[in-house]
Nucleic acid binder design. Structure first.
Lengths: 159, 159
DNA sequence: TCTCCTTGGGCACACCGACGCGCATCCTCG
DNA sequence: CGAGGATGCGCGTCGGTGTGCCCAAGGAGA
């Protein structure tokens, strides 16, 4: 199934404002409300739209510090990976965790209030992870780009 | 201003389902619809809720490969940073870009269709970035955690 | 070339639900 | 005991949503 420019326009708009009504969206896209409703439903049914989520301002919660953590395990055995992953999903300050190729086994993205708070997280969350051989942390000084969706998605319009 | 458990419960629910109606939310949180409406409006006005966004299934667009790219610049001068950042924001496949402490100057997260596609992105987007001294890419074999909001936010309830 | 058929769009309408208001009540704190 | 803040209930209005129907455009086949 292929998406045309209007579909992409709908997705782009919903990515910005998920609560827009059919008529509101229809005006922006250049369709009638019924035509838009059909397309939106199709996009949902076909799985292009997973759901609608509120975007929280994490800075408002004091979470202004992003830390990238590289973790190497003692062993790359399946059992070690499973044990590590079972615990890392419980870490409440971790927002992303990738199993990586190359020398570093895992890369985590951790959100903290500040550097002191990260020290606490390191002590109470990260240091308790099993099978860890080495932990290396780098602080993000600034976030230059933070997109949920790559802009390339909205630029491939057919027709 | 402090949030109590009901506020956090509202935020948690809206993070999952941003289109829930007042009555729907009220039932889950244990409030009446009016009390909930007031609290939700307060959360919006106070900036805890930035907005409501549709979550797209990137796999549906073929973007199944995540790549972490480490980039070191030739120079850390303010001019070099500005020049680099002015260009990197134009890269349509980059979803995140951090200015880092330590040896690596920037870390990007790039979404690609597959490894072949990343080669194209490397050639057409990354290699054109100015002032770059070294580029090092690591592929994510698997995504263990992908949260928009750390669970720690929902667990600090007062009262 | 004509015709049939399919696909997508627009218009109008009716129903249903959401939303916001006012007021009474309750709880807490001073 | 009084006052302020938050809650819950009921109501009316408004808007969104979904349906049915018709129309236009494009493609296929005879």
């Amino acid at each position: 199934m292929a998406l045309d420019r209007k579909d992409l326009s709908i997705l782009a708009e919903l990515t910005t404002n998920a609560r827009a009504s059919h008529t509101e969206l229809a005006n922006k896209v250049g369709l009638s409300s019924t035509a838009l409703a059909r397309r939106q439903k199709t996009l949902e049914d076909d799985g292009y739209i997973q759901g609608y989520r509120a975007a929280l301002d994490l800075a408002q919660f004091g979470l202004t510090t992003t830390v990238l953590v590289r973790i190497a395990l003692e062993s790359q055995s399946d059992e070690a990976l499973k044990a590590f992953e079972a615990e890392v999903v419980k870490c409440p300050s971790v927002v992303r965790c990738f199993l990586m190729s190359g020398t570093d086994d895992y890369i985590l993205i951790v959100l903290a209030r500040d550097i002191r708070d990260f020290e606490r997280i390191h002590r109470t969350e990260l240091s308790r992870l099993p099978r860890v051989a080495r932990v290396q942390s780098s602080f993000a000084l600034r976030e230059v780009i933070n997109r949920a969706v790559p802009t390339v998605v909205f630029g491939e319009g057919k027709r």
